[in-house]
Design a protein around this nucleic acid. Sequence first.
DNA 1: CGGCGGCTTGAAGGACGTCAAGATTAGTGG
DNA 2: CCACTAATCTTGACGTCCTTCAAGCCGCCG
Lengths: 252, 252
Amino acid sequence: MSNIKPIERVAPIDPGEGDGDEVRFCSTCAFGEVCIPGGFDKTALQDLHCLVEHVGPFHSGDRIFSTGEKFESIYAVRAGTVKTSTVDEEGREQILGFHLPGEMVGLNAIHPARYPCDAIALDTVYLCRFSFPALATLATRMPGVQQQLFRLLSADIGKAALLAGDHNANERMAAFLILLADRFAARGFSATRFRLSMARGDIANHLRLAPETVSRVLRRFQDQGLIRVDERDVELLQAGQLRQLARCILHA
Amino acid sequence: MSNIKPIERVAPIDPGEGDGDEVRFCSTCAFGEVCIPGGFDKTALQDLHCLVEHVGPFHSGDRIFSTGEKFESIYAVRAGTVKTSTVDEEGREQILGFHLPGEMVGLNAIHPARYPCDAIALDTVYLCRFSFPALATLATRMPGVQQQLFRLLSADIGKAALLAGDHNANERMAAFLILLADRFAARGFSATRFRLSMARGDIANHLRLAPETVSRVLRRFQDQGLIRVDERDVELLQAGQLRQLARCILHA
DNA sequence: CGGCGGCTTGAAGGACGTCAAGATTAGTGG
DNA sequence: CCACTAATCTTGACGTCCTTCAAGCCGCCG
């Protein structure tokens, strides 16, 4: 049974190509503040727009890049969700993270100069591709670009550390939901109702839990009136309590 | 009983001040390749040396910076070991990492613009302090500096993800030892014999284990002939087998 | 409709944590 | 140099949270 009415789309789904809609995307993108004119040198800004390439659509399961490929570009998600994951030689997957619209993918590839993970579309995905060498060159001329790159990289270190801690299933699940909500909110989506673009198994993997445990925790949360779940649609009913549960993880 | 003879010091302990010994340290430092002349613009290089400040000594337990302080500088470890950790409101510590000579501390503070963790000396520590604003400015003139910063930041994302995975106590302990060995080796120390500068409890915390479990795993490794442990002195007898044990973590 | 993958639910087992006690070391001051 | 205490480490017994295994359910798509 479905307890929640269908979730209305808050963001544009199909950006089309060459539709002159850049501003709508860029305003929520990690690079928006430097992409969109803000007192920067005009010609440099021109360069920034020139080195951006719109790519997509990718469909669920499509690979954006694969482990070991030569690192060339970083990506900003325009629409859809991307998961990054590694596969060890036993064939077990480890999901590093999920990337929502406005977030960057590929920053961890700069150092090894090869992508250290796979990037896979979880639904219909559109991206902005930035040639990294070109971006780095531009950054030497535009301090704003350099600053933003430093910030994005630094932020990713913190993100990676978030779920690395020692916490039980309830705390990790609560933190996952709250983080998702906050990230949706930051991009102008609803913070209380959203659709999970990833499978339970993917959530479980990312949180170092068994899929069964994820199911059980979600059910427990629902029984306690904290959330309402209908398949992949989630509504946060007591975001405050969830945040309280997750406070050890969220910060620290 | 002591099974291992005392470990001879491989690295200089007391760097003194203004001893003209920079090269000895810088050659093993994360910034060495840009600090030490390598075809770079002479005046820019001069600037790099100018914005470096040698600080220390810090003693065991001393704080280098604290959570919430305004971010000003990043640090390179010249001698000793630094641990970075957060404390949640329940008062529980979470150790983010250990920083050996030649490694950077504070890169995760760029984004929030405040240090998101404490940095604490585990023994006698000497550091190079880099004013980050000055470094960033310099980076716009010296692409090599910018590249190195990007690489260091990117590498830290990968490091943070390493121990975030779902692995059992044996794998994590083996990975910890091998990673330590490799890092010592990269800086010119012995890869098979070294002294743990951190307490068992700190290792345990970092690996999300109980201190008791760390003891038990180390004993098991010793009984299997993989290592020899005498207090904090460790000798890797079967580094290959340890690496094999840790391969799922080390990579993936 | 029927098969298949994703999800849920229950019962049993295991890896690690917790608790408690003892051993060893380090630190301190006489 | 030697007590004395506190801190760290080790070891064993027991408990618990989560995984594993197994089965059934549901929605999706050919």
